[in-house]
Design a protein around this nucleic acid. Structure first.
Lengths: 213, 213
DNA sequence: TTGACTGTAGAACGACCGTGCTATAGTATA
DNA sequence: TATACTATAGCACGGTCGTTCTACAGTCAA
């Protein structure tokens, strides 16, 4: 592998960004292995070398693609949620933004990380490690938000934050899987209902149903 | 594609079975696309032609592999649960057997169908359709068992069977994903806890905790 | 003993893979 | 205007893929 050339010019940065935009789209639907350099070259009307030189190896291309997906995820899911106040409110925003990001097909193949996780969960390497780290960070974020909500009495003290995070994450993941496999949007409805009911239960309020607002 | 030869001799049936056993193992860990005929030939010390002739095409090999996985799943998860009486008891058995089948690594790559779903959810074809049909059948089985439990008053009338099936399925799927990605068995504990708590809630009994038995 | 048929091997095909070498047009610097 | 360097192209390599054609040893029926 060539030690990944220099490439610091404005144009090079722009080209690299264009490549990665297409790469993320392909990878989300056909996997990070299915993402081939020849395929990218054809799609971008460039030579294979032209693509390759920007990364130096297939693995580096995959890692850069994951970083690009991470940036999109942060922009689409996490950042908008930061406008909501910490605690149950932000937790709801994170989950709802996640569902929205899958529902409106930000990535052609559904959640990029769900697809990448399934693809790399049984093989070693830097790509696996990166995806595992990012997934863990997301789970940690959910758990910490729950813990914060608990400190504000928005969530009952008897709730185990890791347990609740596991369950909420399971709901959104399941929505993604069901939607992609059956191409049926009703999975989002089930997921939203599961989240809402569960959060009500965790809050301890019997049946709230805030009338308006 | 050659029209998949005749092959009805005892020996041919045996060979085919041996091939598929290895195929299922490879496919669960490296995907149905990663399952290559050359790889299979090397593993079985046969020629590529020797393998190929049994199926006629890669797609037929993949479909046969899915059928083999289905048979194993039925044997490991569904059949043992049929010993439990219908209703909440059998529902619990189905879920627990599923967790056990992942936990003891019946397939090297975790749940075969979870992996195959993620791999084929974004592409058309017979393999996708078969996997979707099998996944749907499993979901239907959960839902029907819940509906039966409801008819026996084991589950509250207010519960929507499809909703509960979605949530329970989400828990087991999440256990599989977390276990494979992080190689951490604690996911099973979280999953079991989620299932148990949820079934208690659905049964309507406030906090049962049957003392012994 | 002959002949048909079965299961497998060997070799080859065209296509695509990731990667490396070399050349070159374009740009920036001197 | 001459020089250095950047970003990309062209081409080729060895390898693997799914697939096909042909050959052949083994078995079984006549």
């Amino acid at each position: 592998m060539k030690p990944a050339v220099l490439y610091h010019t404005d144009q090079a940065v722009k080209t690299r960004r264009q490549i990665l935009q297409v790469a993320v789209d392909i990878a989300s639907a056909e996997g990070l292995e299915g993402l081939s350099i020849g395929r990218l070259a054809a799609e971008l009307q460039m030579s294979k070398t032209g693509i390759f030189a920007h990364f130096g190896s297939k693995e580096q291309l995959q890692l850069a693609t994951v970083q690009t997906a991470k940036a999109i995820f942060l922009e689409q899911v996490v950042q908008p949620a930061l406008k909501s106040p910490r605690g149950i409110s932000r937790l709801k925003a994170l989950l709802e933004n996640w569902l929205g990001y899958v529902e409106r097909s930000v990535f052609r193949g559904g959640c990029f990380f769900a697809a990448a996780s399934a693809e790399f969960d049984s093989r070693p390497g830097a790509v696996h490690d990166e995806i595992a780290a990012l997934t863990k960070a997301w789970m940690d974020a959910l758990r910490e938000e729950i813990a914060f909500a608990q400190s504000r009495k928005e969530v009952q003290a008897s709730v185990n934050p890791a347990q609740l995070a596991f369950e909420l994450h399971a709901y959104v993941q399941e929505a993604n899987c069901a939607f992609k496999l059956f191409n049926d949007k009703s999975a989002f409805q089930l997921s939203r209902r599961a989240i809402a009911d569960h959060l009500v239960a965790a809050s301890g309020k019997r049946t709230l149903k805030k009338s308006k607002q």
